[in-house]
Amino acid sequence: MATVLSVSGSPSATSRTGRLLRHLDQRLTAQGHDVIPLDVRTLPAEALLGADVRHPAIARAAELVARADGVVIGTPIYKASYSGVLKALLDLLPQYALTGKTVLPLATGGSTAHVLAIDYALRPVLNSMGAAHIVQGWFTLDKDITVREDGSLTIAPATAEALGEVVDRFSAALGRTPVLAAAS
């Protein structure tokens, strides 16, 4: 099956966004995909903010993107946009780093007022980076994600069902990614 890079753009170690992504990674793995998690917050801040594309951690992240057939990008929404750490990483990747890739944008936030941030803030950037296919994304309210004391995750039933369908459509789309013709 496909190699999927699952990118958490949350700056928090206890992020609902990150936990939700790792939960969805399990579904993709069960479907036969090779899933590689990447938490942007673990990349060196000095390299991210200093635009040090030669830093080994940044070069490795770019290599993981290049290797992936599909990319899941998850972010909390802050002030009607995706996170700054995610923006910093996207800025350091090559201009067309997503060429030929299927991309699933996911977001979490405290209010439905942010639901359009995926389409108006994140999707244009992913498009500009050459994504072959950006599947329908999904916004999850923070209140629909509960992290229990033992670290396990509970997702509200309707949200869990919708997320399952979104991930399944992404998984199916990975098999249908168009092959770009080589320039003659």
Results as ranks from 00 to 15, higher is better:
2 A>N: 12
7 V>W: 03
9 G>R: 00
10 S>Q: 05
11 P>A: 12
13 A>E: 14
14 T>V: 06
14 T>D: 01
16 R>G: 00
20 L>P: 09
21 L>Y: 11
23 H>L: 06
25 D>I: 10
25 D>A: 12
27 R>M: 06
29 T>Q: 06
38 L>E: 03
41 R>E: 01
42 T>K: 12
47 A>V: 01
47 A>E: 05
53 V>I: 13
54 R>Q: 13
56 P>D: 05
57 A>H: 10
57 A>W: 07
57 A>S: 15
58 I>Y: 09
62 A>N: 07
66 A>I: 02
68 A>F: 10
78 Y>E: 02
79 K>A: 09
84 G>H: 03
85 V>I: 15
88 A>P: 08
90 L>C: 07
90 L>V: 01
94 P>Q: 09
94 P>C: 05
95 Q>T: 13
95 Q>Y: 02
98 L>R: 13
98 L>P: 13
101 K>D: 07
102 T>S: 15
105 P>R: 00
108 T>H: 12
109 G>D: 14
109 G>F: 14
111 S>R: 14
113 A>F: 15
116 L>M: 11
117 A>T: 03
117 A>H: 00
118 I>L: 15
119 D>K: 04
120 Y>I: 08
123 R>V: 06
124 P>T: 11
124 P>L: 05
128 S>N: 12
131 A>C: 08
139 F>K: 14
141 L>V: 04
142 D>P: 00
142 D>M: 06
144 D>L: 02
148 R>N: 09
150 D>I: 10
151 G>A: 10
154 T>H: 15
159 T>R: 14
160 A>V: 03
161 E>P: 04
163 L>V: 00
165 E>L: 13
166 V>D: 03
169 R>D: 10
171 S>T: 13
